[in-house]
Design a protein around this nucleic acid. Structure first.
Length: 573
DNA sequence: GCCGTTTTCGGCCCGACTGTTTTCAGTCG
């Protein structure tokens, strides 16, 4: 069983334990172990017992459970729980407003263990007799069942970001003094967002009216003076919190998370005789306010350097913050160019000249034009002759856009057997080659791994494009031995792409971090197919930052000469 | 179930909102 599978099982155990009414801290231990396994890059099946126990929050028992899950797909306590509760009972827990206590009561008193059974029971009025069940609660449950399919799951970071901007803009037009910021997973730049969390200070009291009165609000889930939640059309949940200005920093810290980071921070506060909540950091004995207006003040008072939001996943950032070893993270401003984009010659929507002009307008020093190769026939991919003609046209434009150098490249397909779509002598004549997989996504792991390993044997492959081939919510990553592929890329001097297409974000954060620790070099790429999509690099930068990348780790932060010399084709083997 | 610069036992983060409550439990983040 792979890491996501083990993580899912651990999370289900936690859910079932909760329905059972087990010790809350035991439940938390399983949840936290699920998170840790989900965000561990190395397959847990390959970790030794000692390595498993080094994972934070994993002790003797959980290490044994993880081992058993990885090897057999299940484990003894999981089996026991599944004997006790039908697995469909977990469907009930997913309903908005229905928690473990309610599920336990439904099951114990009415034998309800599935959505269908619950629907029937509500309609028959059988819930009426239960403690704490009134007409409103019934209506709430029916509503939750109805909305279940639309609200299930998470959203692309890009979609969450766009929605947050829209909601904040609407509030600002009505509340000019309001200071708004997106917090939560959005601020941490997470790959996907479950909801949008907004924080507001400095607005008049009726800001909540504006928020819940947004015409795109489908349903108001809750409305208070300091906290409201709405469901927008399209299924997005948006939460707005209002705090006084003197608590702004504490609230930003608190609502940015992650949960694990916050728990560790609050624990740290307790150890120092302080307590931390969304209103500030306080001395426990006297109640004196230690910090609150700024995030920096909170971290400083706890003996820590301010931690970039993208690092707040309890993955070593607190140690680094204590010891002055936080990285200076990459930012978009560090990028001097973009090394992956398409034009109308293949499947781009804008011409070579338009793309070059846009690159110049953005202040880039260089861009690589990397249209598709012939295997991508539906994109009008280039064969060797057309590729070289296109390269000549690209190079002929140099001198026309002041300050900008155009590199003639290609995004060359990696074929099913790992050979490249274009002949080596053609690839040798280009300035840069990005090798990518666009077909045969369902090979067995061994075959898929060999395919990529073979491809990067070719000395003219400079960059491995969108390395895992995943498309968020649409296509799983290619089954391959990623640590092995990363190691081979490091050894061969092949840079790893962080592809910025909103639904790719590939490599993802976990593997970026692993690759960095292995000594990899990276490129940040938009994979732009139009002048509008240069901004895709924003999502690559999110992944880079979450993977602890500094500018020096990223080739396209270097001046052109250094960049060229760093490409694999020019590196001494 | 985890963990240790007060602790190997006894702790374990904190608050808002809702509904059915007459003082609070459940849910959520």
């Amino acid at each position: 069983m792979d890491n996501p599978g083990v993580a899912r099982a651990l999370a289900e155990i936690a859910d079932l334990l909760e329905i059972k009414g087990e010790n809350a801290f035991k439940i938390r231990a399983y949840r936290s172990a699920a998170d840790v396994v989900r965000t561990t890059a190395d397959p847990v099946s390959r970790l030794s017992d000692a390595q498993l126990r080094e994972l934070p929050g994993v002790g003797k028992d959980l290490a044994a459970r993880i081992r058993e899950l990885a090897e057999t797909g299940t484990c003894a306590p999981y089996q026991a729980l599944l004997q006790e509760f039908p697995p469909t009972i977990l469907e009930l827990l997913r309903l908005q407003g229905v928690g473990p206590k309610t599920v336990a009561q439904l099951y114990a008193s009415l034998g309800i263990a599935s959505l269908d059974a619950l629907t029937a029971a509500v309609r028959d009025g059988r819930l009426r007799g239960l403690k704490g069940m009134g007409a409103k609660k019934e209506a709430l449950i029916l509503k939750a069942i109805e909305e279940r399919t639309r609200t299930a799951g998470r959203h692309l970071l890009a979609d969450a970001t766009a929605l947050a901007a829209e909601v904040m803009a609407l509030i600002r037009t009505a509340h000019l003094s309001a200071s708004l910021v997106a917090v939560g997973s959005l601020r941490r730049g997470a790959e996907t967002c479950g909801d949008v969390d907004l924080l507001c200070t400095g607005a008049s009291e009726d800001v909540m009216d504006t928020f819940v009165g947004n015409p795109r609000v489908e349903r108001v889930l809750g409305r208070g003076d300091t906290k409201s939640s709405v469901r927008m059309q399209g299924g997005f949940q948006v939460d707005l919190r209002v705090v006084p200005a003197e608590s702004r920093g504490a609230a930003m810290q608190y609502f940015t998370g992650s949960k694990a980071h916050n728990i560790a921070l609050r624990d740290r506060a307790l150890q120092r005789g302080m307590t931390l909540n969304e209103y500030g950091l306080f001395r426990i004995d006297t109640g004196e306010v230690i910090a609150g207006p700024t995030e920096e003040g909170i971290y400083e008072a706890l003996g820590l350097a301010w931690v970039e939001p993208e690092l707040r996943e309890l993955k070593g950032e607190l140690d680094a913050a204590e010891n002055g070893r936080l990285p200076r993270l990459l930012s978009e401003r560090d990028l001097l160019g973009d090394l992956h984009m398409h034009t109308t010659v293949t499947d781009g929507r804008d011409t070579l000249e338009a793309m070059a002009a846009e690159a110049q307008r953005r202040g880039y020093r260089y861009v690589a034009i990397t249209d598709h190769s012939k295997a991508l026939a539906m994109a009008n991919g280039l064969d060797e002759r057309r590729a070289l003609e296109h390269a000549a046209r690209v190079r002929a434009l140099n001198g026309r856009y002041e300050g900008l150098t155009l590199l003639a490249g290609i995004e060359c397909d990696i074929l099913a057997d790992g050979t490249l779509d274009l002949a080596e002598d053609c690839l040798a004549q280009l300035d840069i080659v990005v090798a990518s997989i666009h077909s045969n996504f369902t090979q067995e792991e061994a075959q898929a791994t060999d395919r990529v390993l073979r491809a990067i044997e070719c000395p003219y492959v400079d960059v491995l494009g969108h390395p895992t081939g995943r498309r968020l919510f649409k296509r799983e990553p290619i089954a391959m031995d990623i640590p092995r592929v990363l190691a081979a890329a490091v050894e061969r001097g092949v840079a790893l792409e962080l592809n910025g297409q909103a639904e790719r974000m590939d490599l993802g954060d976990v593997h970026v971090r692993l690759a960095r620790e292995m000594g990899a070099r990276f490129v940040i790429s938009s994979d732009a197919h139009s002048i509008d999509s240069f901004n895709n690099v924003r999502w690559s930068v999110s992944m880079a930052r979450r993977g602890w990348l500094a500018p020096a780790d990223v080739l396209n932060t270097y001046p052109l000469d250094t960049l060229r010399a760093s490409l694999r084709r020019h590196a001494r083997q």
